[in-house]
Amino acid sequence: MRPRIPVGSPLQILLLACSFALAGYAGVRLFADDWLGVALWFVGAAVLHDLVLLPLYAGLDRALVRAAGRRREWISYVRVPAALSALLLLVWFPLISGRVAGRYALATGLSADGFAARWLLLTAALFGGSALLFVVRVRRATKDRPPAAH
C-alpha cells in the first residue's frame, strides 16, 4: 500500500535528523533546570513575535497608510522616524522604562535617569529631521514647478 503522506527528499530528512539530534543533545541541558520556564520562553518568543508584535506593527502601519489617504508621499516621513524610534524602544526597553534602574545604578555606579530622556530626544531628532527633509523637498518641488501649474 502506498503511504498517504509522501516522504519527500531523503537527503533533507537525513540533514534534519542530524540537526534534531544536536538540538536534542543541547536541548536536554537547556531544559534541565526549569523546563517549563525555558519552554515558555522559547516557544513564547516565537508566538509573541509572530502573533502579537508583527500584527501590531503591521496594523499600525496600515492605519497610517489609511490615515494618509491620497497624500501618500507623506507616509515615509512619519513611518521612518516612528519605526526607528520604536526599534530603539524595543531594544532598550529595560533601561528606558526604568524597570532595572535600582539594580543598574547600584551595580554600575552610573545614573539610571538619562535613558528615557535620551530616547525622547532621539525620537524628537528623528521626527524633526524627517519634518525638515519634508519641508525642503516640498519647497523644492514647488519652486521647480512652472507658474502655469499653480
Binding site: 544536536l22 543541547a26 529595560p94 524597570r99 539594580r103
Partner: peptide
C-alpha cells in the same frame, strides 16, 4: 541591561540555547 527575568542563569541559557539554535540554523 541587567534585566535578569529569564528563567535561570544567563550562562547555561545562552550557551545551550545557542547550540539548539545553531543546530536548526545550519
Amino acid at each position: 541591561q541587567l534585566d535578569y527575568v529569564f528563567p535561570g542563569s544567563f550562562y547555561p541559557l545562552h550557551f545551550y540555547g545557542a547550540w539548539v539554535f545553531f543546530a536548526a540554523f545550519v
